[in-house]
């Protein structure tokens, strides 16, 4: 992780998650799905958390989501300038993920639970592009 407080703390991809970060670099939000029970899941792992099958595949998600819940963080946080939403979204395919909501005001009036969102990708460096979400167009 970065030691510079002005920089966002970036993920370090693992052997089990590299496909996800390769995907975001290419503008794809990649999920995994079980070849046996058919359920989608997140975060990445090479087996199904619902039925323990190793028969899983990686596929691109639609990028559509809804806002499940959030806080607006007022504490100093590396890489953030002022209050910002730390949000959890429900993807169209079912899994949830933490993210930030961008391209809108970071206020309770603007950030309404269940509002439709779509993924957008923000490049951080050569290795890492983060999936963020913005109000659906």
């Amino acid at each position: 992780m970065s030691k510079n407080f002005s920089e966002r703390l970036l993920p370090r991809p693992s052997p089990e998650s590299q496909h996800f970060w390769d995907g975001t670099k290419e503008g794809e939000l990649r999920l995994q799905r079980c070849g046996d029970c058919g359920k989608s899941y997140f975060p990445p792992r090479p087996f199904c958390p619902f039925c323990s099958s190793r028969n899983v595949l990686v596929y691109p998600a639609s990028g559509q989501a809804t806002l499940y819940s959030y806080v607006i963080n007022h504490l100093p946080t590396p890489g953030f300038d002022g209050p910002h939403a730390v949000a959890v979204v429900t993807l169209e395919e079912g899994p949830r993920m933490m993210t930030n909501i961008v391209d809108c005001e970071q206020t309770p009036d603007t950030l309404v639970l269940d509002m439709p969102l779509e993924v957008t990708f923000e490049r951080q460096n050569d290795d890492i592009t983060l999936p963020l979400f913005k109000p659906a167009s």
Partner: peptide
């Protein structure tokens, strides 16, 4: 550390 920390 990988899927929550980067977002705050």
């Amino acid at each position: 550390g990988e899927f929550e920390v980067p977002y705050g």
